[in-house]
Design a binder for these strands. Sequence first.
RNA 1: AGGCCCAUAGCUCAGUUGGUUAGAGCGCUACGUUGACAUCGUAGAGGUCAGCGGUUCAAGUCCGCUUGGGCCUACCA
Length: 899
Amino acid sequence: MKETEVAVSGTTTAASTAPNTEMDKRFDPAAYEQVWQRRWAEKEYFRAEAPAERPSFCIMIPPPNVTGKLHVGHALQSTLQDLLTRWRRMQGYNALWLPGTDHAGIATQLMVERQLESEGTSRREIGRERFLERMWQWKQEYHGNIRRQLDLLGASCDWTRERFTLDAGLSRAVREAFVRLYREGLITRGEYMVNWSPKLGTAVSDLEVEARTVQGKLYHVAYDVEGGEGSGERIVVATTRPETMLGDTAVALHPEDERYAHLHGKAAILPLVGRRLPFVADEMVDREFGTGLVKITPFHDPNDFEMGKRHDLPGISVIGPDGRMTAEAGPDFAGLDRFEARRKVVERLREEGYLVKVEEHTHNVGHSQRSGEPIEPLVSTQWFCDMTSMAAGALAAVRDGHTELVPDSWDKTWEHWLTNIRPWCISRQLWWGHQIPAWYTEDGRCFVAHSAEEAAGEAGTDRLTQDPDVLDTWFSSALWPFSTLGWPDDTPDLRTFYPTDVMVTGFDILFFWVARMVMTGLHFTGEVPFRKVHLTGLVRDAEGQKMSKTKGNVLDPTELVSEYGADALRFTLASLDSPGRDIPLNPNQIAGYRAFGNKIWNAARFALSRIPEGARVRESIDPAGLAAPERWILSRLSRVAMEVNEQLEIFRFDEACNRLYHFFWGDFCDWYLELSKPALFGDAPRPRVGDVLLTVLDRALRLLHPVMPFLTEELWQRLPGHEAIHPETICLAPYPRREEAWEDAAVEAGMEALTQVVTRVRALRTEMSLSPKAKLDLHLQPADARIGGLLQEQAPLLRFLARVETAAVGPVPEGARRDLVAGVEIGVAVEKAEMGAEERGRLAKELEKLDAEIGRAEARLSNADFLGKAPAHVVEGGRARLAEMRERQAALRASLGLA
RNA sequence: AGGCCCAUAGCUCAGUUGGUUAGAGCGCUACGUUGACAUCGUAGAGGUCAGCGGUUCAAGUCCGCUUGGGCCUACCA
């Protein structure tokens, strides 16, 4: 594997460490992302401890398949897992995000088989041993890719604890689990009907069968009734698979079907073959469907298999594991592919006059999820795991809340699936996987053991052959949360991190994987494997279409990272993760969040270039003695810190990102940085502006770090005084919390009024079609005296932000353009205040709407029921709003020159 | 066949226990090169919250039905 060397020397590194280096106006994620990832890895910041004094937090990665590269779905899930891990790590938890990969049985084997095919050979040809060597080569290569891709995304995994489902430790766990379940009688070997995939040459589990609706045909076939040769009585059965009739051994009818009452005890004669088929009565027959008579093929249909057992019917295998007709199908059909056989059987039936009619028929047919062909139900000897007792535990775990599904809309599906669970066919006729720990003696006795030696000991002979089959890949995945921590040994890791905290994965593997982990976790450890499951939606393209190679709309996370930067991609994915919804990923949106990154970059650049000498990041700041803008931004910061923590607790990544975005862009950049300018430039100095600015920036970066790890580290390192927060890295700096001492409702109200006044004045300028340079005098008359005081005090800031000549608190003079916002009456006096027709029209329209609304509000506020039943704050709010509207109405009428 | 979810601005989506004027991003329009940022700034237009009915003083939010879309689970030959 070619290793791309990253320049760790030169300007990029210097930029990352030296606070006073010139910052480029354009931010360039590529210049620092990989540098930081590498440094974090070298310093082992993400290595968790066991045992640990601190509380632990643990997430197990859903191990990506070693089949190829990561897709955007992985990027989404990795982002969320990393976000949670970084957040908890900063909160002081002993946080572990354990990485790893899955051998992915069939999927990977197919890739290598395809490779062999292109080399003109096959696995049979090179043999099991050499094939497995090739498999391991493949694994090495792709495993490296996955690590690289996770690094690109900024994943803070503890790579010292990396696991692979086929490594020694996990293989031991698999054998242990198998042996225990076998000894408990839950794993058995037997001959049953299984879902067989002829192309793959293996059995698959029910979950690997995908029902597809296909347009098929319903063939009505006449069978002669035995003894009716003279009378010529015939019955008609309906089938969608005429080729299976060659294996028929009975005809079923409903016990109470009067039409066929006379057939009880009789038999039919199978056309083309001549076999005698007894009639059996079974309630499962639907009298309404077809003719009410069903041909029974016990070895090629799951229902018929059951019925065969109930009525003790023999079965005949007419279709083999290769999907071709067997010798038992008779010389005319033996060797034919099952679909060819169907054509030929139909042809022969037609020729011989047994085909009554053919109807179009839409029905569901099970297809192999992996190979796409129709599944062939076959009787075969396989290993099965009885899940019913384990399912009961998993049901209880969700009902009792020991494991919580988020969103909980999946609870019902969980309930339904687990209450109807059937035995799990766990053996696969493959080579890539955990070989089944069962050994057979020459006389066919079976010994299940941890090793060949143990089996030999039990068998009393070492002339043993191990079962050639391997386990379903999901068997090892089912043990993942504890096998990765050293189970079956009682290791410090297991004691420290188990049960884990969260499982982040897609709902598509809820049953394949999540349910099975809960079942085995409870069974083997007595505890749920994770306390919460966050189920993500499916990442779709910008039009909401599923991504698929054939549609060509697949987005590659690696490309997205190189185009927009990992931080922008992460922010986008996190902010789109709303509960229970799929995720439409639009590159425009990623570009939007890259712009956010640029905004952060430039805000930091501005702060660093303008702060006074000696200003530093402070661990804490006493708001006493600070001016209103500083007290305001600290108060806002405290609230956003509180909200972000709250939202992350409940996995509302979208909401957390939203708060961060609006705080940084809106409160901090749009308002606070602007408000800080007069102070920073010496026009109107304020106490400790530099310290506040840096401290707010520091905390904002820390709040953002779990979502945008690279950019925040890069900038944070440049803040003077950041070492006081953490000597080395933002990754380990404390995650900001609410600071109640900073919260100040009065200042927030006052500053809210100030910003709204400024916005309103800007709007008035537009409304009055005034040039941005037109000279205005602003008069303010707030209803609340405290707000008045603040506005008075901040008049220079008002002048600066609203770009007015004068700003005064006091009565609004005659002739000024009036307005009202946030309880402040505004008067804008301008020399030429004549109103244009356009403006007049706009105001008239507004007045019209306002009149209607006032009418509605008045009606409501005079409604006795409303006054009696609505909570006080709603009524008061309504009154205040009405008063405001009336004032606005008066102002509008005055402006329009109405009485 | 059963179950679940969704329908809100041109697009993609928020809207937590019903409660004051339904929000964001992108896109669009106008203006703007003001001491960090044109990956920018300021302002603006744009919504009968799919439809119908019900509960309530009050419904995007709760209930029922209809329509349209998506998904999960299923052994009707």
